[in-house]
Design a binder for these strands. Sequence first.
DNA 1: TTCAATGTTTAGAC
DNA 2: GGTCTAAACATTGA
Length: 288
Amino acid sequence: MPELPEVETIRRQLSAELSGKTIKNVEVRLAKMIKGQVFRFKKKITGAGITSVSRRAKILIFSLSNGYAILVHLKMTGQLVYTKQGKIKTGGHPIKDGHKDLPNKFTHVIFKLNGRATLFFNDIRQFGYLMLVKAGELDGHFSRMRIGPEPLKSDFTLGAFTKLLLKKKKSKIKPLLMDQSFIAGVGNIYATEACYYSKIRPTRRVGSLKKDEISKLYLHLIKILKFAIKKQGTSAKNYIDAFGEPGEYAPLLKIYGRQGEPCLHCNTTVKSLLLGGRGTAYCPKCQV
DNA sequence: TTCAATGTTTAGAC
DNA sequence: GGTCTAAACATTGA
């Protein structure tokens, strides 16, 4: 479900709660959600402390005190729910009433932590996974996965972006933005939005992009990602005990999911097409 | 009933 | 090797 801004939002919220906690017990209710052997997964993390929560692309990394790390990928419909004596924090796919009566039928893994805290890993479509990796092997793991650069790191400059694009001249720009080996963390929502802001037709070949179009794309992509994090993502935020609010970026989407509605800039009816199997909304007049 | 859904991987075609 | 498409994973909700 979540893209970079949503995963980053979850990371920030969970980091404050999980850092310093000890994993007392792990219950795996659906073995296929664990990549690798379940007994090893349970054995290695039971009793370990969580030292920090970080992120690479759309993957969360729980670093443990014993030299291991747990990778968490929520894919389309994964959800993490943290509870501690009535206090609830959820992050991930919004599931109707999914936070009530936990564990529920979508709860696949349960971490019991000290201080009467619990972390639930829920996933409707069961696409997500948890995986145990040695801390020292994280870099190797990510490079084997061929994950591209982090768009919000300072070394991801316009020059670096341009250089990467030059290697992919024949690709269509929007599917390329979503290609995790090209840039890490950008999914369908923000790739669609970035093309709209940059006035670029999602089907454009990279080789046809002019210099100023590339810099527009670069600037808008980064701006959108940062702003979405500030707004706690499109759906990640969910303090259901307090307010029950969704992510605050959802109402700010300019083009994603608006097919059939008027373009906010020129009133032309927003169209959509299928690119790489994903629905892609665009304005036929604004996006050339 | 049919379709699409915030993700990724794989197989096959050109 | 590059690039594209469809299909697969499983479930919900419009």
